[in-house]
Design a protein around this nucleic acid. Sequence first.
DNA 1: CCTCATATACTTTTT
DNA 2: GTATATGAGG
Length: 796
Amino acid sequence: MDDFDESEAFEGAVSLSNRAMAARPTPYLDGLNPAQREAVETLDGPVLMLAGAGTGKTKALTARIAHLMVQGRARPNEILAVTFTNKAAREMKGRVAALMGETVEGMPWLGTFHAICVKLLRRHAELVGLKSNFTILDTDDQQRLMKQLIVAENIDEKRWMPRQLAGIIDGWKNRAWTPDKVPASEASAFDNRGTELYDYYQQRLRSLNAVDFGDLLLHMLTIFRTHEDVLAQYQRWFRYVLVDEYQDTNVAQYMWLRLLAQGHRNICCVGDDDQSIYGWRGAEVGNILRFEKDFPGARVVRLEQNYRSTPHILAAAGGVIDANEGRLGKTLWTAEEEGHKVRLIGHWDGDEEARWIGEEIEAMGRGTRGVRETGLDEIAILVRASHQMRAFEDRFLTIGLPYRVIGGPRFYERMEIRDAMAYFRLAVSPDDDLAFERVVNTPKRGLGDKARQKIQVTARENGASLLDGARILLADKGLGGKGAAELRVLVDAVARWAHGARDQEQNHVDLAEQILEESGYTAMWQADRTPEAPGRLENLKELVKALDGFENLQGFLEHVALIMDNETETGGPKVSIMTLHAAKGLEFPAVFLPGWEDGLFPSQRSMDEQGLKGLEEERRLAYVGITRAEEVATISFAANRRVYGQWQSALPSRFVDELPEAHVDVLTPPGLYGGGYGAAGMAASASPQIMANQASDLHDRASRADVYNSPGWRRMQSRARSRPVSQPRETKAMVVDAEAVSPHDAGDRVFHTKFGYGTVEGLEGDKLEIAFDKAGTKKVVGRFVVAADEAGDVPF
DNA sequence: CCTCATATACTTTTT
DNA sequence: GTATATGAGG
């Protein structure tokens, strides 16, 4: 517990004047531009660093930290530096260490809001009725708790209620509302019982000695507000406060910061209002817009020189974001002069879009795109919603293009990992009722609802934990049959494990293995014949391996509660596929931005629910997307897309119209989109060779395709608007049919995108009966199939 | 108590 | 189109 070492430092704080203040070299200032330098050297008073995308904000932030230390303004442990993600915190730590050399010990107060709050709350837990060893619930635990509450309160209704309630309560916590502070205007929430349930939920958490993520901040806020002495202590201790990604702070975080910085006002917030994309989870752009009012006399420094992207990319991004109102205003510029324009292309449908991008990536890899040879690691596809990834995964799998999906379910969120962790939790703290509940019947022990209810009742009657409740129930012979015997085994096993966990001699990795073995959990997955079972066993092995790096199980659990990331990078270079949200903070030489269609992006839901506010956030998302690109950005849209299994046609995104014409290359030949479907069909069915030749001659095509923003373009849009939904699909089929794809006969070896390789068994009109090697015998429309030996390069 | 069929509903995501 | 939850039936 390094935080308790720190507490000594609190008492023994050395006065700064005693320390040598001799001038020390400041090499970290050398590489800074004037704006960065100003942001670094303005140490006193509030500073707002408005750092546009790619303007070297982390550089400035880390240099500032180094400067504070070198100038003797603060020791490493007197600087509070908050980030949102562990990744950002890690990077900053690494960079500060690099700047300062190895002589400086780590910065204990550089971390995420949550990690820092955990440290603080462990010290002061009793002030909010918790014990300092409280557990931190994640979303899953949280929702199961909600569900219990809802059942207990007899609110049935729809089944997403737990999630909804969790969402509402989270929202309140983000706004720093404790149950008694929830305003009357919110009373209607959850059938007028929202506040009441919130209160129950908090009581329940307290009785479990647990907190959720929102509580970490909220409890600290409560402590600061009710215990002036505690607040004063930290106000004195944290001489300088730095905040990264300030535009993402919610109200609770903002208040927390303001309380801590109130005294000396040495607070430096870094952010970019144009990159605020987390409004939906409570972030308040208002925090950054209001900064100068909140901290009068604040110095505002704008970092506008961009070191990442070409001028065209910056101009295109700028053109889009310009349409937003209420910005603080920044104009990115670069010293670079060369570069590609942002490329824009329309496609027939989502599949064609994926196919085109796949080919484009392959061509880039060969350097045949008028672009330098681009490796797969340098390419990213950024989508608005994760379901869009699927089309790319499907396509890349069939053409054998290596890719990696970033984001998605994280390692520690997987079911098997969470189950295993629950067992570990039980070993470390046998009273952890949530953990007990999770694993009591996993693997199946014949302990169903009834048995679990009995355990619950017994536990409650005796004021004991569930585990003890189970013990009592067994002793009273209140349970019979198979379940009783199994429960006996489990209860005894937990006792054994708990003993092992307390035993200093016992190796915790061995213990973990023993737990998984004796609980029957490993056996459960070994017996499982579903395709994901081997992967899950693999993950369990990974988990046990990860334990190696920790002192004991307790330490590991503590770590995992807050650090939910998953950095298992293996294999060669891969194209990255991720959401726009996940891409924030990253950069790639080549970026593809597919799916720029109204309704998808900007998302219809966002606009419906949030109105103009929602649209502006979507626009910022577009801005974030474009500014991820260093050299080439390619925006695309499709006229037709399958949404929830239903074909839908869509218009190009309004953001497409906002791209400044002068910085855009329109790759779509005249008439491809909306004008004549034939062109699309032809392109789709043309041989790969022809496609590649056509496309590789970008300039030629672009100059011919000067339709962007022309009357024709607009006309195409309005025509697209009136087009019946079903029409395009038929047209495509007709065109492709007319192309007369090579016919297959019985006995032919063929390839199908979805079913793989197979042999034709018979013909039936335009359908083929095919015995697939893997997928069994199926009837398939002939044009969805190609001869097996062509399968490598036919675009399907 | 478990398995299967049916219904229903779907952004974005860190801690 | 898919995941998930609920209900009926084994």
